[in-house]
């Protein structure tokens, strides 16, 4: 794209810096959160420019989408306060401009220079060489679910753990009816939810040979669930202790762990799938991981332990 590309990158960088500044300094919280959501959106464009479509997908779905929904929903519970006016922020910071800006510029410059010197040899050739034995055609998926599958296992573990930790902090806020009673919302939810499911399935199928895969797919599906919840549907995850939800929530993690152990028992190392069944194993893992990510994002979004179902006993340990 040549010169136009340079201009494009420069504009993108200016917008991102401005949004980041707003997200961390804006006078009122809502402006900060909206800035952050737009920041995520434009970061996805930046990932596209940097030839990282997988990350762009994940950032669009998780970074801007799910995180944005989480932040916006948190706002209604954090009593919104008027912040300092913009002029006052500017004036209060005027003193630090003299002191901090040169130091900051020096730090940023040094970091940039250091990073610019990096030779970045990369593992591209090694990864491409090993791709044939990995069972998938797309290199990023191969890294995630075969070469570095342990990272992915632990990452889904962190998500399960986050759901457990969020639930442990107390009950979910009462599922209030939408504050704006509107006939459009439920209709919108009903119309859009099938589209979310369809797109998620499509992304999952794409994952084995092109950007996509379990993570964006799961995030899109989770976002669809959040949409239904917002549109006034009652949360269908109930906290019944012996009900299926807790088992389903941890299923993705459990299946990955199981695959890892089976690999070890089959005579190889932890997570070593026999080459013959690698592609099938990865497909199964992708489907369960995607489902699990979707449900976990939804579970985390409930912001507390969902209320127990009416028909189950409240027996506790």
């Amino acid at each position: 794209m040549g010169l136009v590309g340079q201009v494009f990158d420069a504009l993108l960088a200016i917008a991102l810096v401005w949004l980041a500044w707003q997200a961390t300094r804006a006078a009122d919280l809502f402006r900060a959160v909206v800035s952050f959501i737009v920041f995520g959106l434009l970061m996805a464009v930046a990932w596209v420019r940097l030839e990282a479509p997988d990350i762009a997908l994940a950032e669009a779905a998780i970074g801007a989408g799910a995180t944005g929904a989480l932040l916006l929903s948190a706002l209604d519970r954090l009593a919104p306060r008027r912040g300092r006016s913009w002029a006052r922020v500017w004036r209060a910071d005027a003193r630090t401009w003299v002191l901090w800006v040169p130091a900051v510029m020096a730090l940023a410059g040094a970091l940039t220079a250091a990073a610019w010197q990096l030779p970045a040899p990369g593992l591209g050739a090694v990864a491409t060489g090993a791709l044939e034995q990995s069972g998938v055609d797309h290199a990023v998926t191969a890294v995630l679910l075969n070469f570095r599958a342990l990272d992915t296992l632990l990452e889904i573990g962190v998500l399960v753990l986050a759901a457990v930790a969020v639930w442990s902090m107390g009950p979910a806020p009462a599922a209030s009816a939408p504050v704006m009673p509107s006939p459009t919302l439920p209709m919108l939810g009903r119309t859009l939810f099938p589209v979310f499911v369809l797109v998620a399935a499509y992304l999952l199928w794409r994952g084995s040979h092109a950007p996509g895969g379990a993570f964006p797919a799961g995030a899109v599906l989770g976002a669809g669930g959040i949409l239904m919840l917002l549109a006034g549907a009652q949360p269908w995850i109930r906290s019944a202790e012996h009900g299926p939800w807790r088992a389903i929530l941890s299923a993705g993690f459990a299946v990955m762990l199981f695959a890892a152990i089976v690999g070890a028992l089959a005579g190889g190392a932890f997570f070593e799938y026999p080459a013959a069944i690698a592609s099938h194993a990865i497909l199964v893992l992708e489907v369960t991981a995607g489902m699990s990510i979707a449900l976990l994002l939804f579970a985390v979004y409930l912001r507390g332990e969902p209320h127990p179902a009416a028909d189950t006993d409240r027996q506790r340990c």
Binding site: L123, V126, A127, A130, N146, F147, R148, A149, L150, D151, G263, G268, A269, F270, F271, E272, Y273
Partner: peptide
Amino acid sequence: VGGWEAPLGI
């Protein structure tokens, strides 16, 4: 882990 050696695997 996974039978992949050092620079690529864990």
